[in-house]
Simulated scan of single mutants.
Amino acid sequence: ISLGYIGLYEVASVFYGGEWEANPAAKDFTVDIIRQMKQLCEDWSDAYDYHFSVYSTPSESLTDRFCRLDKAKFGEVENITDKDYYTNSFHYDVRKNPTPFEKLDFEKIYPEAGASGGFIHYCEYPVLQQNPKALEAVWDYAYDRVGYLGTNTPIDHCYECHFEGDFEPTERGFKCPNCGNTDPKTVDVVKRTCGYLGNPQARPMVHGRHQEIAARVKHMNGSTIYNPGQA
């Protein structure tokens, strides 16, 4: 039985402010939360003879629903409900841009503290077809530090103007930044919705998840346009 959680970033923001990642006391607070959840699961496993585990949830619709319910009850709270989404599991605030190495170093303790039910790390990149060594450097660095790493790099494609790269978010989906095409029949948009890759133009997401994806920034500098002729 896996018991999932989301919103660890928002919990710490309540007590330490939205920039808490640089505060060691705030991080210790969040790690202690995970360790207490793990201990409770171990206690329940012993008591009920079932295996309980902590799941670092890649929530899809819950990120929207929980935030929406809290916003109705508590109003618009900075760094909490004003974003219209809650941050998945232990992830670094998606609006900030640490390097991939800094992000992995920051997050690696959370699965160690308690994630027997599953977890995923990920980093956001620009187009890396012309710079595979940069991606290899992150993979090499992550190899003995984390157990599961997702790689988010733009592969969106427009079949009208043949743009390849990163589409721009709109109010309800994504559009080609070159010609403005949004037709799901003539564009291919690939985003890491949660732990999996999805096509939000063909299968629209709930509002909160769309806002979270639109808020993500790159953890490495570089172009978001794929140019096959570039050296």
Rank of each mutant, 00 (worst) to 15 (best):
K38A: 10
V31W: 02
A214I: 00
E124A: 01
L8A: 09
Q129H: 11
N221W: 01
V11K: 07
V190M: 04
D105Y: 02
H121M: 07
R192G: 00
Q130L: 10
V206Q: 05
E76D: 15
Q211T: 01
D43K: 01
E107I: 06
Y85L: 15
D140Y: 08
E171A: 13
V189E: 01
N79T: 14
F106W: 07
D49C: 04
G180N: 06
S223H: 09
N227R: 15
V14N: 02
Y141L: 04
I1K: 12
Y110W: 15
D82N: 15
C176Y: 05
H91N: 13
Y141P: 02
I155M: 09
N221I: 01
M37N: 08
I213Q: 04
H210M: 05
Y5Q: 12
G180M: 07
P169I: 03
L149K: 09
K38V: 03
H51E: 14
D144A: 12
Y196G: 02
Y85D: 15
V11P: 03
L197Y: 15
W20P: 03
E42H: 01
S61P: 14
K38Q: 12
Y122N: 07
F52L: 05
W139L: 03
H157G: 10
D105Q: 12
I34K: 11
G150I: 07
E212L: 12
V54Q: 09
E168F: 05
S59D: 08
F66Q: 10
Y16E: 06
M205R: 03
A202Y: 07
G198W: 02
P111K: 05
F15V: 13
C123L: 04
N199G: 05
T153D: 03
P154W: 04
G7D: 15
A142N: 00
N152S: 07
V127E: 05
M37G: 11
F90S: 08
D28V: 02
T224H: 00
S89Q: 12
K191F: 06
I1Q: 12
Y226D: 08
N181L: 13
A26Q: 09
D70M: 14
K38N: 12
N199M: 02
D140C: 10
C41N: 06
W20C: 09
F52C: 09
R68H: 14
E164T: 12
R209M: 06
G75D: 11
D188V: 09
D32T: 11
A134Q: 12
A26W: 10
N199D: 11
N97Y: 07
Y143H: 12
E160A: 14
D105W: 00
A47C: 09
A134H: 04
N152Q: 10
K133E: 14
R65G: 08
E136P: 00
E136F: 02
I34H: 11
W139P: 00
D32R: 11
D64M: 13
K96E: 06
I155A: 08
I1A: 13
C123D: 01
R192Q: 01
K191W: 08
P204M: 07
S45G: 03
G7E: 11
